Amino acid sequence: MTSPRTLALGLTATLALVTGGCGRGDEPEPTPPPPSPSVSPGFVVLSDVDDRILTDIRYATAANFVGRRVDGYQEPLCLLTARAAEALRRVQDAALAVGRSLKVYDCYRPQRATDDFLHWAAQPDQDATKAEFYPRVPKTELVDRGYLGAPSAHSRGSTVDLTLVDVPPPEQARVEPGRPLVACTALYARRLADNSVDMGTGFDCFDPLSHTDSDRVGPTARENRRQLRHLMTDGGFVGYDREWWHFRYRDEPWPDTYFDLPVTRSSAG
């Protein structure tokens, strides 16, 4: 697999050129413009801006649809542009006022991670997570149906995947290796251990039930999705109708630039 790797030393990154399409966990993306000069994204670590927001960075672990740590996730951190992080801090204030907390699953995503997703999708024998993350969709259709693709708004640094958690938060159970896989579409009590509220499906569930306005999820999940969408849109974020967890900061500072810095504290600054 090849991926854009043109990283400058320190805190700069070169625009990552990728093919157009529908990014995984994303709104449809245009083909990126020609290369730009090296730029400094000004990423921050979310916990440095607001340590009240919970984190569960799934791609830095094996608890994701690939079944292993994803390329580029060297540390389990949420990196964001300073503008998006400050906006998320304000959303957290609003969430706490109604007895809920935000919990982020993914924030800035390096281009190499999206390349890793596409490489995985092209390997028909790597199907070990199907029973959990795409139980009703053939792996060969994940790209055609828009569940996987490139580029991704996450690589611009102002998009987050997140959920709500009750306050005080229940304990987050440890995900044990070799655990029995349960469909992400199963009832809340049976799915992958997660201390979040019921959203009708698990995170990264490649299924129509994950569509934000699905009328096939129960009333509790519909209300929780409505609350999350209300909090985020009031805070300046735009949702994605096919994934209840996905939100992009409307006033993002890098709307046309896709970065490939690894997820590590050294990429912030």
Rank of each mutant, 00 (worst) to 15 (best):
P30E: 07
A122Q: 08
P28F: 02
V165G: 06
S155V: 00
S38K: 11
A131N: 04
A62S: 14
R136Q: 08
F203Q: 03
M1C: 11
A131C: 06
D125Q: 14
E223N: 06
P110G: 02
E252C: 02
V98K: 12
L80M: 13
L15S: 14
Y240E: 10
A13P: 00
P170K: 02
T14A: 15
D93H: 10
A85E: 05
R250Y: 07
D215A: 09
F203Y: 12
R24A: 04
R248S: 12
V66G: 03
A84Y: 06
V263C: 00
P135I: 12
A189N: 01
A8T: 01
R242M: 04
L118W: 01
G67P: 05
T2H: 09
P177Y: 05
D194Q: 07
T31S: 03
D125R: 06
R109W: 05
I53T: 10
S38T: 07
D56W: 13
G239I: 00
D207W: 05
R52H: 12
E171R: 13
P33G: 15
R52L: 06
L209M: 06
Y134D: 03
A8M: 08
D215T: 15
H246P: 09
T12R: 15
L80Q: 08
A95L: 03
P169L: 02
V49C: 14
P219D: 14
D51C: 08
M199K: 03
A186L: 01
A13Y: 03
W245Y: 09
V104M: 02
L164R: 11
A97G: 11
R226D: 05
G218M: 05
D48N: 14
T220C: 04
G157D: 02
A153Q: 10
W254D: 08
G202C: 12
V66F: 09
P255I: 04
R222E: 10
D51L: 04
R83D: 15
L181P: 02
R90K: 14
G239Q: 01
T140Y: 01
Q227L: 15
V45A: 11
A186D: 13
V175C: 06
D56C: 09
V197R: 11
D93V: 12
L231H: 13
D194N: 14
P135L: 01
R90V: 03
T55A: 15
E141L: 13
V165R: 10
R156M: 07
Q123N: 13
R83C: 06
L96P: 00
T257W: 12
D251G: 01
A153L: 06
T31I: 13
D241A: 06
V49F: 09
L192E: 09
L7I: 14
V238M: 10
T257M: 09
T220E: 15
A183W: 04
Y188V: 05
L96H: 12
G23L: 01
R68E: 02
Y240R: 08
L17G: 11
D125W: 13
Q126W: 14
G20C: 07
V197K: 01
T257V: 11
H211I: 00
T6K: 15
L11G: 07
T185W: 04
P35Q: 15
G269C: 02
A60N: 12
Y108R: 07
A189T: 13
